[in-house]
């Protein structure tokens, strides 16, 4: 078990290094001079540019710059924002927390909807199955920012509930905070619920035909016991894996959703930085979110092995 965790983590390290190279290289791919971008929109003299270069260490060879940056990253220093001149880490962390909350809520909503519809479709079959699959196909075709826009349209115009679109910080009002994130999380989670629903359906169908479910029925157990202990518990393992792997989609989607609902999370931070061409911030966000996705994948693998004793045995 411990060995497996270590091996999985060790395999992740080269990928993380590659990710850091891409994130670093992305900034150097810029047309023109990085120093000009750092100086902002004001036109500056050659001497000022030279000073900026020296300050940012741009006069050193590329690999050295990468080394310095990487060393900073490993000690938690992600550089300074061009726009605010403040450390990126300080600015990013509170926003990351907001995005994490939104993403987790969206994941939870997706899981609830997905498992419920997938289960219904597999157990009830017939018309319900047909209905759920049609709904899923349609939902898959509606991008989350379109869902969000339509939600804003419907709720904003026809059901103008108070404060529904105004983000409330958690520290100020925890319940108001969760309430204000419900609709954004729903628009983010709906698309992901399709994948979960389809996987739940397949898993439940697969488990239903297993002999141990027949044995459970032959034991005279009640339908709800069979559903809970025999069907769902066995079907859930692949479903949890799939949900974990959807994290990348949720993180990417949160950028759009946060912009639409004006939630001060990492997505909006990225969007603002893109408009301002604040490259250190972009670089940091790309690195941080990829790391989160990679580590989640490792966690999912480990959780899978723990939940499903059969896996560790093979």
């Amino acid at each position: 078990m411990i060995r497996m965790v270590l091996v999985r983590l060790a395999l992740t390290i080269p990928i993380l290094l590659g990710v850091s190279i891409v994130a670093f290289g992305l900034m150097r791919m810029l047309p023109g001079d990085f120093a000009e971008a750092a100086a902002g929109t004001t036109s500056v003299s050659a001497e000022v540019l030279a000073t900026t270069r020296a300050q940012l260490g741009l006069d050193r060879p590329l690999w050295e710059q990468y080394g310095i940056w990487l060393k900073g990253v490993l000690t938690g220093d992600l550089g300074r924002s061009f726009a605010t001149k403040r450390p990126v880490t300080t600015e990013l962390l509170p926003r990351l927390a907001v995005t994490a909350e939104l993403t987790l809520m969206a994941g939870l909503i997706a899981m609830i909807i997905g498992v419920a519809t997938g289960l219904a479709s597999a157990r009830l079959r017939g018309r319900t199955d047909w209905l759920v699959r049609g709904w899923n196909s349609l939902l898959l075709a509606v991008p989350n920012f379109v869902v969000a826009t339509l939600i804003v349209l419907v709720f904003g115009l026809y059901f103008p509930m108070i404060g529904i679109f105004n983000y409330v910080p958690f520290a100020k009002d925890p319940i108001g905070n969760i309430a204000s994130l419900l609709l954004p999380a729903l628009s983010l989670g709906l698309t992901v619920s399709v994948t979960i629903s389809e996987n739940t359906r397949a898993a439940v169908l697969e488990v239903s035909s297993q002999d141990y479910v027949m044995v459970a029925r032959a034991k005279g157990l009640l339908a709800r016991t069979i559903l809970g202990n025999y069907l769902v518990r066995n079907a859930l393992t692949p479903v949890i894996t799939v949900t974990g792997l959807q994290l990348a989609a949720l993180l990417g989607g949160s950028i759009l959703i946060e912009t639409i609902f004006t939630i001060p999370g990492m997505g909006q931070y990225l969007f603002d930085s893109v408009t301002r061409r604040d490259y250190p911030v972009i670089q940091a966000i790309v690195l941080v979110s990829s790391t989160i996705v990679l580590l989640t994948n490792v966690l999912v693998d480990i959780a899978y092995a723990r939940v499903d004793a059969r896996v560790s045995y093979e």
Binding site: Q210, D211, Y212, M214, V215, A216, R217, A218, K219, G220, L221, L222, A223, N229, Y230, R233, N234, T237, V307, D308, A309, R310
Partner: peptide
């Protein structure tokens, strides 16, 4: 019928490898 199954009439199946719930 669920009161009869297991209580009055019980059954043993063919494939013991697949007949037990792996997560319990």
């Amino acid at each position: 019928m669920t009161d009869v199954r297991g209580r009055r009439i019980a059954m043993v199946f063919q494939d013991p490898m697949a007949s037990l719930n792996p997560v319990m």
